[in-house]
Write a protein that binds this DNA or RNA. Structure first.
Lengths: 285, 285
DNA sequence: TCGAATTTGTGCGTATGTATC
DNA sequence: GGATACATACGCACAAATTCG
C-alpha cells in the first residue's frame, strides 16, 4: 500500500486517500456528481458498484468482481473490499453466496395496489384476490398457503379490533407466492363475534375471497380500511419464510377494515422492501 | 482468544463458536426464541444490543458499550465488535460519533397522515399545512424552507404531469423541520399551464397553503391523489439535508394530484425511514 | 467421482488519523 | 495535553460452499 501524495503523477489528489487508482477516478468525477474527494475508499467503491447496478451495466443476476478482483482493480486491501460489499448487502441490492460470488439482485419492483379504489382492477373477471391481481399485473402467477385457527386476542390485537383481551378471534396466517417464489407474509385476525357460525367463519373455506366480499355475503358492509406503513429490518423468521438474504429491509403494513366504525378484520403484512412499491389511490374530499 | 470446545464447562456448545461467554448465553436461550446455536458471534452480539434498544433498556441517546467494552464482555476481537455495531448502523438504530461513542437513536416514529380523508384533522382551526398538522399531532412545531422557480419539465416529470417534455413548470423544493430538526424533503412540480398568471402561481406567496386549497381558489377542483411508496437507502444529499447518519433508509413517496383526470401537481417526498409511519385511510367502494 | 482452486463468511491482530472529553 | 473512542485501513487464517477439470 502507498499513499497518493507520494506519487504525485500530476493529478490533484485528496490528502489521506490510500488508493491512487480510485483517487484518479474520483478526482475526475468531482466536476460531475457529489464531491467524493473525502469519501473513504470503501464507500467510493460501493458507490461505483451501486452505480453500475442501478444503471443496468450490472443487470440482475450478474456477478460482481470478487474480493481479489476488487483488491487488484482499486488497489485496496481485502478489508476494504469486504466493507464495500457489506454496504451494498446492507442496502439489499447485492447478495453473497459462499463459495460462488456476490451477485446483483433484481431491483425491479412489484406493485402492490392498496384496496379501495383502483379502477383498473375492478372488472368482474380475472383473479379474485387482491394479491392475485397484483401478481397478474406483473405477469406472474399468484398463489398462497394459509393456516387458520381459533385463538384468543392478545392486548395488541384486542385494541386494534376494539374487543376485550382474550376475546375469541380467527387467526389466519398466509404466505403468498408469485410464480412459486415467496413474496409476502401476512397474519390476519377477525373477531369471531362477527363471523362465528356463518358460512365465512373460516376465511379460506368458501369460494368468495377477500374480506370485503366475504363480509358482504353475511350482510356486513365494509366501508373503510386504515393502513399504517412502516419499515424495519427483517427478523430471522421473515428471512427464512421469504427466502431473503439476511439483514434486508421490509415494509410492514398494519391494516384494519371497519364496517360502520366497527373493526371486522386487522392484519399485519410483511413485504420485502426492495421488491415492492406500494400504490395508494385516494379521493380528495 | 480460545475456542469453546477446549473448556467444556459442562454446557453444550456450538462447534466453532469462539466466544464462551456468548455461547453460554446462546445455549441458555435456545429453548426460547430463535435458534442461535449457529449464529455468528457478530450477529448474536448485534441481536443482543438490538433487543436492549428495542426493549427500552437502552433508551434513545444512551451510549452503547465501547468496542473495548464489547471485546471484554463477549470475549471477542475488535473486528467482531465492529461488525456487530456495523449491522446496527445499517439498520439505522444506532449512530456512531467519532471520538465519543455509539448511541441508540430515537426509535419513536412520527406519523404522516396521507391527504384526503383523515377526519381528526379536518377542522377549520389549527395548522394550515398537512405537514404542520402532522407535527402538531406529535406535539412539535412544524416549519419549512422553500425555493420556487420556473423550469422546463424533463422526461420523467412531463410523463407524470401529462405534458410535453420541455413544457414550463413551477418547481418548488421544500425542507420541512419539526422543532427545528429537518425531517422531510420534497420537490413539487406544477404545470404553468394551470397556474400561470393566477394569484397562486407561486406556491408559497399567498396565505392559502396546500395544493387542494390553492387550486380551489382558481376554480380547479382537485379530486384525487395517487401516492407511490417505495424505500431505498439515502443518497449523499439527503444524508446532508436531513442530518442523517450515513447509509440509512428512507421512504420515498411519489404523489400526483389530479382534477378531473388532469394532473395539477406531482411531487417527490423523502422521509427518514426509521422515523416515520405512514397512515392511509381509504374508503371502500 | 474426486480433488484442487476459487470465493465468501467469519474471525484474529494491528496501525493511523482524528474527534471528543 | 492526554486518554479514550470511533473510522478507516493494513495484514492474515481457516471453514464451508461452490466450481470445474
Amino acid at each position: 500500500m502507498y499513499v497518493c501524495q507520494r506519487i504525485r503523477i500530476g493529478a490533484e489528489v485528496a490528502p489521506g486517500c490510500h488508493s491512487p487508482t480510485l483517487c484518479g477516478r474520483l478526482v475526475g468525477l468531482t466536476g460531475g456528481a457529489a464531491d467524493m474527494s473525502n469519501t473513504p475508499a470503501y464507500l467510493a467503491i460501493a458507490a461505483d458498484l451501486r452505480a453500475a447496478i442501478l444503471s443496468g451495466e450490472l443487470p440482475a443476476g450478474a456477478k460482481l468482481p470478487s474480493e481479489s478482483g476488487l483488491m487488484r482493480q482499486y488497489e485496496v486491501s481485502r478489508t476494504v473490499a469486504k466493507w464495500a460489499i457489506a454496504v451494498l448487502k446492507g442496502e439489499g441490492i447485492v447478495e453473497g453466496r459462499a463459495g460462488s460470488g456476490v451477485y446483483a439482485r433484481d431491483t425491479t419492483r412489484l406493485v402492490r395496489h392498496a384496496p379501495g379504489r383502483d379502477v383498473r382492477f375492478r372488472s368482474g373477471d380475472g383473479p379474485t384476490s387482491p394479491f392475485a391481481r397484483d401478481a397478474a399485473g406483473a405477469g406472474q402467477q399468484g398463489t398462497w398457503e394459509h393456516d387458520s385457527r381459533h385463538e384468543k386476542a392478545d392486548e395488541r390485537i384486542a385494541a386494534r379490533l376494539g374487543v376485550e383481551p382474550g376475546a375469541p378471534v380467527m387467526r389466519t396466517s398466509y404466505r403468498f407466492l408469485a410464480d412459486g417464489e415467496p413474496t409476502q407474509l401476512s397474519v390476519s385476525y377477525e373477531p369471531l363475534a362477527v363471523t362465528e357460525g356463518t358460512p365465512v367463519e373460516w376465511p379460506e373455506d368458501g369460494s368468495v375471497k377477500g374480506v370485503v366480499a366475504r363480509m358482504d355475503t353475511i350482510g356486513v358492509r365494509v366501508d373503510e380500511v386504515v393502513e399504517r406503513v412502516s419499515l424495519r429490518s427483517a427478523n430471522a423468521e421473515e428471512v427464512e419464510a421469504l427466502n431473503l438474504p439476511a439483514r434486508t429491509f421490509v415494509h410492514t403494513i398494519e391494516w384494519t377494515y371497519t364496517a360502520g366504525g366497527t373493526p371486522v378484520e386487522t392484519a399485519d403484512i410483511v413485504l420485502p422492501g426492495g421488491r415492492y412499491e406500494l400504490v395508494y389511490r385516494l379521493p380528495i374530499d
